[in-house]
């Protein structure tokens, strides 16, 4: 017991010292480097349109209009203070999950004019891990292309080409999985329209 008490003073002193080094010096150094060398990235990869901030390249957002590609279902929680990222955390045998998926499948088919036999890509009917997934699968995008083309009066092929153009492929050829960045795709669609 005495040994413990004797060590309390060095403990307190090193705690203060290390808090200063690790809690003040270190993060401020990293912030300084980040802000100077990687300003865009360090500040959230913000995307603007016509000078106005519309979102982040890395974060998914809600799209409901027929002329936009829709992102994945999200379990983001809105609170007065902040939007809390997160997943549904529903288990695989959960009835709640089955009900939600069933409903989403029906809605997806209806929305995109697909027959009742069309298998729906899994990313379209499952909630993402963060609630902020910026991507959808290529299959999902291609099934939405028809609806988007019709809503914007564009040839489907052009929409398909645009999709292909906005695929974030695997990095270094093997890392991760390919996906379509919905915000960038929708911005490109809007850019098309404004050019027309």
């Amino acid at each position: 017991m005495r040994a413990f008490v004797r060590q309390l003073r060095p403990a307190l002193l090193v705690f203060v010292a290390l808090t200063a080094i690790c809690g003040v010096v270190y993060p401020l150094v990293v912030t300084a480097i980040g802000q100077t060398a990687f300003h865009y990235r360090a500040n959230g990869s913000l995307v603007r349109r016509n000078g106005a901030l519309v979102g982040s390249e890395l974060l998914g957002q809600t799209f409901t209009a027929p002329g936009y590609f829709h992102g994945r279902p999200s379990a983001l929680t809105d609170t007065p203070i902040a939007q809390v990222s997160g997943a549904s955390n529903l288990g695989p045998t959960s009835d709640e999950l089955a009900a939600a998926v069933r409903q989403r499948v029906t809605a997806y088919r209806a929305e995109n004019g697909l027959p009742a036999t069309q298998l729906v890509p899994v990313d379209a009917v499952t909630a993402s891990g963060s609630g902020l997934d910026p991507h959808i699968s290529v299959a999902n995008a291609r099934l939405q292309a028809g609806r988007v083309a019709t809503a914007r009066g564009l040839p489907v092929d052009q929409v398909m080409a645009l999709i292909a153009h906005h695929v974030d492929g695997r990095m270094l050829g093997v890392l991760g999985e390919p996906g379509v960045n919905v915000l960038r795709l929708n911005l490109a669609l809007d850019a098309l329209r404004s050019n027309q």
């Binding site: 089955a98 998926v101 499948v105 298998l119 899994v122 009917v125 499952t126 891990g129 699968s137 991760g176």
Partner: peptide
Amino acid sequence: NPRLNALGVDQSMSIQQSGGNLEGKEVRIG
């Protein structure tokens, strides 16, 4: 997740999607 297959969900692996159980997962990670 086998239960989702019965609901008309496509979890297969293909060129166009990575597939698998994507509930609670991110597309870029798979």
